[in-house]
Structure formats: structure tokens, C-alpha cells
Simulated scan of single mutants.
Amino acid sequence: MAIILGAHQYGKAENRVVRITRDTPRHEIRDVNVSSALRGDFAPAHLAGDQRNVLPTDTQKNMAYAYAKTVGLETLEGYGLALARHYVDDVPPVEGARIEIEEYAWERVQVDGAGHDHTFVRKGQEIRTCSVTVEGTGEAQQTWVTGGFKDLVVLKSTGSEFADFYVDEFTTLAPTHDRVMATSLVARWRFTTTDVDWDATYAGIKATMISTFATLHSLALQQTLFEMGRAVLEAYDVVAEVRLSAPNKHHFLYDLGRFGIENDGEVFHADDRPYGLIQAAITRDDAPDAGPAWNAYTGLV
């Protein structure tokens, strides 16, 4: 039996980069967490400790900060594309690079009804995410970009059901035709092109998903996820596929009857675990192949 080295990569994880643009008295801010992962002929490092092909992770850290200045962080995707292409185009041992970015949003402090020029407060409905993967060089080079978000907590107090489910001898859950439905949504979508208005598209996709969640009378969280993904694909030709992960943040009606108090769907116990976890991919039947940029990503999303 032979023992061999399997798939491998390395990089610098979670570089916390804050870029403040000071070109005018009215400053702008982008606050991100950047991780890089490089693939290539790095087997000698694993098998013999030979580091000659290994670009140090400390160098990758420095590049994350340097490109925040030289390229800028006007868009997450543009910054990520520049970093990934640098590694693949300019570092010979590197055959593929993936850049993953999370953004922590800020908004201006309001003073006398106007946004202050250089003071901000954390915005934070969700954490915006994106990833860029570049593989190969020259005409054979391929690029994949994904957008997304995580930790977007949404809740609807009615308009959701869960009934007519499969029942066996261990089933104790009662069917309901009126329940609270809440989740902390994780979403990723894969682009078919890099010719995208990144920020406007992100805002539009998020709004489309939230609107669908709100207006759809849901018979199941699974149905809601599919309709959210379908709405995005119908609205945005530049998106090939949407992947969603939604933990069911259960709200159970609290038993006040034992105290002689009527509880007509008004007081709930928010139970954080265990929870149902619903995940789905919604795609076009003619979507181009995602390559490693998508399926190498951890988990379904």
C-alpha cells in the first residue's frame, strides 16, 4: 500500500484590513476580513520540507494591505480579482488562487440631519461576503466570482405553515398553519461574468431575497428558499446559481394557560438549539460549469 499526498493548499487567513479614503474632506471607509489560499506544486514542501516554491503567508498578508492602498477597496470583488490575478500571473509556482472577503459595514453618524464627514457607526444587518478564484495563465485562465452574505436574521410573525409532514412513531411535533418563521440566512451566488456593477447588484439581490421571504405565504422553509433563489435568477442574468443555508430559529408558543393566562400567539420562547438546518442550491439548467471555485468551497454554501 502506497501513502500519497492528496489535495493541498495554503494561505493567510483573516487579515483585518480597514481602508479609509481621504481624497476629500468627506471620508469613505471599507472594513474587511481577507483570506488567501494558493494552489500549485507545493508537494515538495510537504514531502521534503523544500520551501523553494512557497511564497510565505506573511508575504500574502502584506499584499492584502498593500493592494488596499494601490488598488483600493472601492469594490470587494475588484480588490479580490486584483489580488488573485497577481498571485497566478506574477508568482510562477502558483497555479490557482482563491481570495475570500467578508465586509463589516459602517454608516455615517447623523449630525444636525446630515451625515458627518468622518464619523461612522457600525451598520451590521449582515456580513457581506465574496470569493474570487483564478486558475491558470494566459488564454487558458479561468475566473470565478461569488457574492453573498451571512448572519442576515429575518423573521415573519405570520404567513408561514408547517403541516402534512411525514409521521412515524417518534413524531411529536404538531402541525401548524400559522407560525413564526425566522432564520439567520447564509446566501452565496455565482456570477457568469466579471462585468458587473458589484455594489448595486449586491443590494438588489439582497432586497429581492428579503422581499420574497416577506411576501410569499410559505408552506415550508424549503419552499421559501427555492422561491428566493428563483426570484434572484429571474431578475439577474449575470447570476448562474444561488446557494442558501437557513437554520430554523424556532419560536415556540409559551404555555401560559397553566397560570390562567390566555396566550393567543403573542408570547414565545426563542429556542436556539437544536435547530432544523435547510440548505438548497437553485440553478439554471444551462448554467456554465462552476469548476473548483464553487464546489471546493466548504459545505453546501
Rank of each mutant, 00 (worst) to 15 (best):
E139F: 03
R230V: 08
K61Q: 12
E77M: 04
L55M: 11
T137S: 01
A214I: 01
G136F: 03
D164E: 15
L185N: 01
V238C: 15
T57P: 02
K206C: 03
T201R: 08
L55A: 10
T215C: 07
Q9K: 06
D164A: 15
Y166E: 12
R52N: 09
H46R: 00
A2P: 13
S36V: 14
D168E: 11
H251K: 07
D264S: 15
E77T: 09
R243F: 01
D264K: 14
V54P: 05
I99G: 06
I205A: 13
I4A: 09
D286A: 07
T171W: 06
H269M: 14
G96T: 03
G115T: 00
H217Y: 12
G96P: 04
E126A: 11
A280P: 02
D41P: 02
R122Q: 14
D255H: 08
V88T: 12
V18N: 09
E266V: 10
T119K: 04
G136C: 02
E161R: 06
D151I: 00
P292C: 01
A64K: 04
V91T: 13
A84Y: 02
T171K: 07
A203S: 12
D23A: 11
G299Q: 03
T176W: 00
E139K: 12
Y104G: 07
E126Q: 11
E77F: 00
N263D: 06
L38G: 10
V239A: 13
D112I: 00
G148P: 11
H177I: 02
A163D: 15
D264I: 03
T193G: 11
E234A: 14
V54T: 13
P92Q: 10
H86P: 08
Q110K: 14
G229L: 15
T146A: 10
I4V: 12
I101H: 03
E266K: 14
M1V: 11
S218R: 01
N53K: 06
A43G: 05
H27K: 03
T201M: 05
R243Q: 11
N33H: 00
H177S: 12
A235L: 11
F120P: 02
R122E: 15
I282S: 05
L5A: 14
H8S: 10
T133Q: 10
G291P: 14
S157F: 04
F165G: 13
E241M: 10
V17K: 05
G260K: 10
T21Q: 05
V121Y: 13
R22W: 01
T224V: 08
E241Y: 00
Q142V: 10
H46M: 06
A203M: 07
G72P: 04
E100Y: 02
G6Q: 07
Y10S: 11
I205L: 14
D23E: 11
R128T: 08
T215A: 13
G136H: 05
I20A: 08
V145Y: 05
V239L: 13
L55H: 06
A97Y: 11
T24Q: 08
